[in-house]
Amino acid sequence: MNDWIAIGALALVGVLIPVGMMSVSYLLRPTVPETSKRATYESGEIPTGGTRIRFNIQYYMVALLFVVFDIETVLLFPWAVAYQDALAADIPLVRALGPMLLFVAILLVGLAWAWRTGAVQWAQTPRQLETDRS
């Protein structure tokens, strides 16, 4: 049987279980509508403002960084799979390993740059704030 059909079956099960639980709960649970219950929870205070808050720019920075590095793994996986075979086939080490090292080296230059320019730094120390302002 095709692997992916099995996976599909599990996916079906994976969806059916929660949906089933929801249905059971739907039948069991009481419903007592009351407006104040539905208020947004803010530790008992009266909720203020909306949720469209402006959050730290760093969330975007790491997200962008992630996209780049994550895709890099996609390109590395085929190499990792083929590496041993390549060595077994007597392909010189430089040709088997060199491209990957170069690839990672370029990535690391990128990481170093992101590091140094503060892309992965969540909060700035007072001293950094000072130098930035000047």
């Binding site: 975007y60 997200a63 962008l64 996209v67 780049v68 994550d70 895709i71 890099e72 996609v74 390109l75 085929p78």
Partner: peptide, 20 residues
């Protein structure tokens, strides 16, 4: 298949730049 890998990588890079 190989090209599809590259396409994915480039699509991701494009998204990164686009989001920026």
């Amino acid at each position: 298949q190989l090209f599809a890998l590259f396409t994915m990588a480039l699509a991701a890079a494009e998204v990164a730049v686009g989001l920026g």
